[in-house]
Design a protein around this nucleic acid. Structure first.
Length: 417
RNA sequence: GCGACCGUAGCUCAGUUGGUUAGAGCGCCGGUUUGUGGUACCGGAGGUCGGGGAUUCGAGCUCCCUCGGUCGCCCCA
């Protein structure tokens, strides 16, 4: 490789082979399950006006303040490559009058962009699948959404991942809890880790899931959200949990699970690999495989009417790491043209076999004597050698015993003559 | 943004305390053999050792800078 050759941008990936197959498998499975739950497919632009994200995620969040790919276009507008799906979907809901379809269940997938330090399961261009229910304020919507996520994971063959569930309460409950946490931690501020001292100002809820040894002694006695829940919020959460039980979705209560983005209310959740499981191993420190919650405040932030909504997103790369090796694509037929005179015969055979719906690979380059060996290395059900013997064209057809494609290919070749 | 480790052929990796022309396996291309569910042998192409600078008679190896990769922190899917 010349040193002039441009390199890929940091944190982007070129996905090939079995990785690409695993990626496609995740997307295909999502699409299938999506239809099972009657979520409608939507396609969204990859960029939006910067304010769409700034207003909905909150100016002070890390995502907005230091991770967005923002730029000015030629008309002078500030645009941003989407760092997440929800804000754009909320914007589309308002600008397209999708209120008329409420409650609206939608799903999409595609690339997202965040300027972060790449590491395992984390990229600057990454991909998510996403599901949202907009305009539904009842806990059944949360249950529906979580049941879908749970089934998706099971259909992907991922069984060592568990739903961690929490409630952040309504806006008032959340504020009261937050104030109590700040008060509690401020009293011991000097003993907290540096990170947590900073979090105390910016994002006190985050202290609860700090990994720092210095913080741990203070966590068990920290105020619990349950003490601040309004009756309404409590009833809501109970309806979610009992609904999950009825749907057969396993869950555990995670009192310290919070969401980083400001717009979340009530239900918050993450699917996390069980400790010591194979999935936990494969993901390293990027443990959350699917996460989301209720964001009743977001659409108002964008200037719309008060509109309740719930949603989740899952990293396709992370899921792909968990689904393991996919079976490689097997060709139906591998064709070796063992003489240059017969290349057109090979092309005709190739066309006829493909027209009948069989996948083929044709080997007609390089040393004629080695073409059969090359064709044999293609993972194919049927192997076809085309060679000349005593001036006659010979089709040498081979397969393992009982391969049903064999006879149909043989019939196609007979018609060819 | 912070920290640790790592960059040698297309891939996986050797390369001694700094010392001739940097190697192997696989893959690729070709020849011969075999004459068919993946043969064997022989040969060939392919490297400014990530890039730049410094030290030295001499650097793949030491030092500095830089770019990239991997993993962790932060944050998050």
């Amino acid at each position: 490789m010349s040193k002039n050759t441009p390199k890929a941008i940091r944190g982007t990936q070129d996905i090939f082979g079995s990785d690409a197959d695993a990626f496609a498998h995740v997307v295909d499975t999502f699409e299938r399950v999506r239809k099972l739950y009657r979520f409608r497919r939507i396609e969204m632009p990859v960029f939006e006006k910067t304010e769409v994200f700034a207003r909905s995620l909150g100016e002070t969040t890390d995502v907005v303040s230091k991770e967005m790919y923002s730029f000015e276009d030629r008309g002078g507008d500030s645009l941003t490559l989407r760092p997440e799906f929800t804000a754009g979907i909320a914007r589309a809901y308002l600008t397209n009058g999708w209120q008329q379809h409420a409650p609206l269940k939608v799903g999409t997938h595609g690339p997202l962009f965040r300027y972060e330090r790449p590491q395992k399961g984390r990229y600057r261009q990454f991909h998510q699948i996403d599901a949202e229910i907009i305009g539904a304020g009842e806990p059944q919507a949360d249950v529906e959404l979580l049941a879908m996520a749970d089934q998706l994971l099971r259909e992907l063959g991922i069984h060592d991942v568990t739903l961690h569930l929490n409630t952040l309460g309504d806006a008032d409950s959340r504020e009261a809890w937050r104030d109590a946490l700040v008060k509690y931690f401020r009293a011991v501020k000097g003993d907290l880790s540096e990170d947590s001292q900073e979090r105390l100002e910016k994002n006190p809820l985050r202290i609860l899931d700090s990994k720092d040894r210095k913080d741990k002694p203070f966590l068990p006695d920290a105020p619990k959200i349950d003490e601040f829940l309004s009756d309404e919020a409590r009833t809501f959460f109970e309806a979610v949990t009992s609904g999950l039980d009825a749907a057969g979705v396993k869950w555990v209560r995670a009192e310290s699970l919070v969401r980083g983005l400001d717009y979340y209310r009530h239900t918050a959740f993450e699917f996390i690999p069980d400790e010591g499981s194979a999935s936990a191993d494969k993901l390293g420190s990027q443990s959350t495989v699917l996460g989301g919650g209720r964001y009743d405040g977001l659409i108002e932030n964008l200037g719309g009417p008060a509109t309740p909504a719930v949603g989740w997103a899952a990293g396709i790369e992370r899921l792909a790491m968990l689904v393991g090796e996919r079976d490689a694509d097997i060709a139906d037929v591998s064709i070796a043209v063992e003489s240059d005179d017969l290349i057109n015969t090979g092309i005709s055979a190739n066309t006829a076999i493909r027209a009948a719906g069989f996948s083929t690979e044709i080997i007609a380059t390089g040393s004629p004597r080695k073409r059969f060996d090359k064709a044999a290395k293609v993972n194919a059900k049927v192997l076809l050698g085309i060679s000349a013997q005593n001036g006659e064209t010979v089709f040498n057809l081979r397969s393992a015993p009982g391969v049903e494609e064999y006879e149909r290919i043989e019939a196609i070749l007979k018609k060819l003559r």
